[in-house]
Design a protein around this nucleic acid. Sequence first.
DNA 1: TCCAAAATTAACAATTTCTTAATATTTGTG
DNA 2: CACAAATATTAAGAAATTGTTAATTTTGGA
Lengths: 231, 231
Amino acid sequence: MAGKRVLVVDDDVKTVELVKLYLNRDGYRVLTANDGLEALRQAREAHPDLIVLDLMLPGMDGLDICRTIREESDVPIIMLTARATDEDKLAGLGLGADDYVTKPFSPRELAARVRAVLRRLPGERGPDEIKHGGITVNFRSHEAFLDGNPISLTPVEFKLLGVMVKEPGRVFNREQLIEEALGYDFEGFNRTIDVHILNLRRKLEPDPSHPRYIRTIYGAGYKFLEAGRDT
Amino acid sequence: MAGKRVLVVDDDVKTVELVKLYLNRDGYRVLTANDGLEALRQAREAHPDLIVLDLMLPGMDGLDICRTIREESDVPIIMLTARATDEDKLAGLGLGADDYVTKPFSPRELAARVRAVLRRLPGERGPDEIKHGGITVNFRSHEAFLDGNPISLTPVEFKLLGVMVKEPGRVFNREQLIEEALGYDFEGFNRTIDVHILNLRRKLEPDPSHPRYIRTIYGAGYKFLEAGRDT
DNA sequence: TCCAAAATTAACAATTTCTTAATATTTGTG
DNA sequence: CACAAATATTAAGAAATTGTTAATTTTGGA
């Protein structure tokens, strides 16, 4: 993951610079363009891994740019717009935008969305079903099982488990879990995660006070234990 | 790393001199400015590696300066301010400040933050796992192993070992270890590190009284022995 | 709109870790 | 070898983190 390239297109230089700053901080290489033609040129020549595209552009409309780029490649696009109507949203998504951010936006949130879109890129989507130990998570049917028996999870619980189960052994801190399970626009208390973890454990741990699947890493976060390991 | 340049901007001459003294001591070359216009001129002409910027300036507001500088470069900025409200903090960070210190501040802490910001600049992060001799440190899973067997470390112990293991053979003095493992806002006793090192040794040294991995350098600090060396 | 389920927050308890201080040991030096 | 300075060790109290419960707010559907 050595510095993916992100093309940021907006006619407002300040906006572009602000976004660039935040993306740089996340380790991305940032290309910029201030109008539609320049955006097209960059998209064709540099083949960025993702494009952040303002809907309102001088000369050529953002929707046209989006459509044109879409005809030439599958690069993910995050739309940026002042308008917030559902029609715009649908139009943008219909044209192949992967996400949608309305102005004024927090650069922090945009950066989170860029991370999210790029993260779910490689290999499109993972397998429909993942098994580890006695836990089975089926993303297609949105079901979870413990030793073959279905367990009923709330949406947040399902996402939490899903995120951790995809990378067994990896420690996720609360901020990471919030970003994945509660959404990057969540502004609340990060210990909310604790309660969801607690509820998850009650549903899937044989002995919730001695967790076998979801382990706490003191001072760091939580992780789903890789299968077979018991330490 | 030959003397990075830091621009310090504050209308109070004493403050500037105090900060300059501490930064000089750390080996930085320090430029100074007492008002907004001078700050802008310096920023444009000298291209410093980092700017310490007071929020309250005569003539031009610090936020305006910050915004203007941001339009012209990606130089990291540490905000300095008497106000401490969350809105100010957000405004500053939204404008691209990299860190925030509220007055009155300890010059020691400011210097530490300058080091921290400059350190995380080259960015990215190292490998997920590092091995030396019988020691393995996995940053992804937040685990450490001795000859393949997991050893359970506290957060501070893990950070300490992690820092040293990344640069085997390098001596770290107590202040450096405190900055990395306890945080640059730590105000406590120097010798706290000794206890953590002791506890680390108990967990990972086959014979803690004859350390093989974490060696004491009398009068200097500690180092993680490079693999294969035994002296 | 109203209800039920879910999510979030707040408060307090339980646990783990950190820090300090006091004492012992080791190291370097004249 | 003796002395001073630096480091090691121990144990206890302080601080931080997490677990848990319960009350409140929000959400989504009938």
